[in-house]
Write a protein that binds this DNA or RNA. Structure first.
Lengths: 257, 257
DNA sequence: CGGGCTATTGAGGATTATCAACTGGTGTGG
DNA sequence: CCACACCAGTTGATAATCCTCAATAGCCCG
């Protein structure tokens, strides 16, 4: 269905064979994270010691030793999705994480949330590199360095605001608005590929897209087909490329007073 | 439509004339908040000095001096809703806050979220008492007391998890599930009234209920009427009383694997 | 007592989910 | 290396949920 570019090449573009997590790369990645910018040297050293790095292939889940009292995860490269299963065959993607973003996982006493139903599942959308550490070891560091707590809080406030935005839009607006908003958001999430600037740099099936904005797979497919005919996007098995943002922005715009 | 109890009395029950925020009450309220439990004496003294108390009547908005660089709010008593306007006449209630919960408001550098569309509006659902302080003054206190940062973070994680739960359910499930889930959640939010244990202790119009779970006012009304005929709830202008939780729990249950 | 707001109820229509059949690409196993 | 199974995606027909519009009743306040 797609014209110029071979689909296989897109798949390879999105999923490099390995994630080179050499100690040096890992160190520099750590220091470049928004979360730790301006942190003092002791903090960085502590974190380098505590954080375990790990690379995930496409579709892999982030799991952790069950004895742990919860996990702090930092996404260095790639993309993750946070899924919630609602029935045995139906899930919703509640969030997509880009590089630099963090997540909590597990049943720490601090995260003692009354989880009804299923717990969240964190799964990679593409070849990714994550750093993880035991949550219990975070608190002492947090009090030692005055930069970290405000940083963490502000990340959470941003996440909460973003989720609220989606919540409102996806609850009220029709399918076209939802998908348009979603595509534009996703395009902003990851680092764009040099040779395909409009390509959303994750592996995304129609089912994923539908699960992100509460639509049936078929509805999402229909809408995307329509847009593809109009020349606004291109898409294939597991990838979507945005060619024209203007019409999508118009579809997902909120009226201004 | 409601049977035994006069509706006027419910309204008075939900909206006591005044919120008695004497210095003594305010002090004890402060020390009893989950957020500050176990905090050291200096912290409590600082906070008592910094926090301004304020009482809100039904439907009032929380506003703040525009010169401020953002606001931390703590809800001591009553209930607040966080609204987001999507069009000039349509809003969504993204969250309902109960006693002890916190909110951020304004344009602090920490809250510099790319807000497209309208900003959030915090509005009281009932006669409420809130404490507010300048966000900029929070950070130094945060680093001085090792208890606060984990506490704040855990509150945010809980809020995020709760919002994700709603997100998933309201995106996927039909109206009856949504409303059932909502009513049960709301019942848990506030302190129950002694003489009406099932009464949701907020002022809630049909429009609010609908805006909380992404339905049209009429749909919400229809579903509630049906439940009222079945004897599961009672309702009137601005209040809902849950009489039987079992059927609602069944409607909003997630299948377990 | 009248105006405005909240809630109820009905009819009609549009969006979207569901079910089903089909295509083509991918990867696996013989 | 080929055949096969499987998965992602497409498309159509049908049905159901839910929204919109509209008219009306009851409560609250001035």
């Amino acid at each position: 269905m797609a014209g110029g570019v071979c689909e296989g090449s897109y798949h390879n573009l999105l999923n490099p064979r390995t994630c080179r997590c050499s100690p040096a790369i890992r160190q520099s990645a750590l220091r470049n994270l928004d979360l730790f910018r301006g942190a003092n040297a002791t903090t960085c050293a502590d974190l380098e010691f505590l954080l375990r790095s790990r690379s995930l292939t496409e579709g892999e889940e982030v799991s952790f030793p069950t004895g742990d009292d919860g996990l702090l995860g930092i996404l260095v490269g790639g993309a993750l999705k946070i899924q919630r299963w609602l029935t045995w065959d139906q899930y919703v993607v509640v969030e997509v994480l880009g590089p630099g973003e963090i997540f909590f996982l597990g049943h720490s006493p601090v995260i003692q949330v009354g989880l009804r139903g299923y717990p969240d599942v964190v799964q990679s959308l593409t070849t990714s590199c994550v750093l993880t550490m035991n949550l219990g070891e975070l608190w002492p560091i947090l009090t030692r360095d005055p930069v970290l707590a405000p940083r963490l809080l502000s990340m959470f406030v941003r996440r909460l605001t973003e989720l609220r935005d989606h919540f409102g839009r996806f609850l009220v607006f029709p399918a076209e608005h939802r998908l348009a908003h979603l595509l534009l958001e996703l395009r902003r999430k990851g680092r764009p590929k040099a040779d395909a600037p409009g390509l959303i740099p994750f592996n995304l099936t129609r089912k994923d897209l539908a699960a992100m904005c509460g639509l049936a797979l078929e509805t999402a497919s229909r809408v995307l087909s329509r847009w593809e005919k109009a020349g606004w996007i291109r898409s294939g098995r597991g990838w979507v490329e945005v060619l024209q943002t203007a019409p999508l922005e118009k579809l997902s715009a909120l009226e201004v007073v």
